[in-house]
Design a protein around this nucleic acid. Sequence first.
DNA 1: GCCGGTCGTCGAAGCGCTTCGACACTCTCA
DNA 2: TGAGAGTGTCGAAGCGCTTCGACGACCGGC
Lengths: 334, 334
Amino acid sequence: MSGRTVTIAQVAKHAGVAVSTVSYVLSGKRTISADTRRRVLDSISALGYHPNAGARALASKRSNVIALVLPLRAGMHVPVLMRFASAVVTAARRFDHDVLLLTADEGTAGIRRVAASALVDALVLMDVELDDRRVPLLRELPEPSVLIGFPAEPAGLTCVDLDFAAAGARCVEHLAERGHEEIALLGAPSVVYDRGTGFATRTREGFVAALDDHGLKGVALPCEETFDEVYETVRDLLLDRPGLSGLVVHNEAAVSHVLAALRQLDRRVPHDVAVVAICPDDVAERASPPLTSVLIPAEEVGREAVRLVMDKLEGRPVPDSTLLTPLLAIRASS
Amino acid sequence: MSGRTVTIAQVAKHAGVAVSTVSYVLSGKRTISADTRRRVLDSISALGYHPNAGARALASKRSNVIALVLPLRAGMHVPVLMRFASAVVTAARRFDHDVLLLTADEGTAGIRRVAASALVDALVLMDVELDDRRVPLLRELPEPSVLIGFPAEPAGLTCVDLDFAAAGARCVEHLAERGHEEIALLGAPSVVYDRGTGFATRTREGFVAALDDHGLKGVALPCEETFDEVYETVRDLLLDRPGLSGLVVHNEAAVSHVLAALRQLDRRVPHDVAVVAICPDDVAERASPPLTSVLIPAEEVGREAVRLVMDKLEGRPVPDSTLLTPLLAIRASS
DNA sequence: GCCGGTCGTCGAAGCGCTTCGACACTCTCA
DNA sequence: TGAGAGTGTCGAAGCGCTTCGACGACCGGC
């Protein structure tokens, strides 16, 4: 093994070749004879050599690091975010890149800093809002970037997200197939709609449009996240709309409260009220009864975001907008 | 502003000084006259200069990046993890460092890689387990590291965590003060105890010891995370122990299920059964009724971990073990 | 048998920064 | 008044890597 900081020069000497030859073995940018390659690789593992990241970045003008920028508002969707983050890291490693984590408290200055200092080659932004103040900066940055979520004006940007409109519609379609005639969407807290967060709005639009398509009656309501508020909302809803027999819940924190409220109101799921959720799989599975759900494909979104940003880094053309198709998992609640 | 990649040489020329002078202005490692310093700083902002991270790392042997290593098992405590991560990033920025995110799927190889390639100066590991396979590696690494959580054999390592034993004891003490005589701890799922995760075990030990100290009767049970299982556990518990009037819940996912189960069993909180939780504040506040809780101080733990790792980087001595005192927030449930 | 064309390898020139030693000053104090 | 001690600044030597141009060696074609 090593004796502290093995350099490429030591590898070269050990293998009896030039430094540049070792470099070419590693990068594959020039042809190297099988024999030489083997000798070099043997020396590398014999010495325990790891290329120095700083030196490599300096010489090649590539740091092989991408920035992952956390959302402006902490506290929302936290579990899903973690899965995004984890998926992004895993995907980045497939492309031999690492991931630098950036929070929002530094504001746009952090983004500017890591880009200007060549700490990162590219950026992935999570949980982009409709009116996201990070977006103008991205436009003027030479480093490529990919957004998870859609801002109001996505022209010229590369965005990935679950197709929330389709997700909302898919839930309606499912309930229509099951014969329900009046349904409701319980969405995000109203503050989320007020600040125009894209995914909440788009789900609602998809839901409302699909009501029409399938000739169903229905309503879309915001939904707060404490049990008491959820309980009231559900109670009032059932009171106002006696014919209502289906519920779509697009609010991870409220899911279990909705079910508890229904139990308390003596409505059986799915007998009296069918419930479909838009939430991560594990939440749906842990509920009682397990919920039919449109899963939020965090892994897929993360993977796709990284793929796109790598394509941009290599100068390959990429689509402006990538919408991932929602997948409905049918469980006991509908 | 810039015209693409401003270097220190351009700043030096613009300010009419030597390159080294600019460097010393930036690092403060030599005295510079006020006048020169101002000229240099003016040039820096006039040109929009940002030091190249790679070059700096190469020359100074410091990358100013620390690694944040995610836990081996994904899926546990996910929301809390995100707050750790965020706190670590924020704290690291205060020390002018950035944070590289590492997942466990690369195994220990990832840790070895970023350390050997000098990509990072130091490491912070989240959610360390009793028998953590990353720990032996840390001992042989020259880079300093800090663990969040305690392994079975922490000698020679630097560990930070909430004092879970004290947290368990604090809950008992609180219920004893309120006059309860028989109480129970609903803890993590049994699989978590089986693999010996430290925080679960330590809470239980603190709980059990405190029962004795305060002369209470009680029991500590594992607790699964689906509603149905929680319901059964709670029902059986109340059946077996008619005198039981207090519950400590140390399982974030089960908290709302426990409350729903109690509602269903017609036990009023806190009138019939007092409930104290060990969970993040927002979960406790969102419950109904809002729960008296020992909060898990993610921000503080993250901040402390970074402070320690920076101390180690600077060669300052640090304590092997840092236990953060639990804080009980009294709310409506007890 | 000579010419042009790969193929495989080498040496050297940076990449942008930090840091060390040197050096010209300006103060002090004997 | 001159030795000694600071100050403030400079120049140059790397840090470990990539990459460019050069150059033998070897090939087939005429």
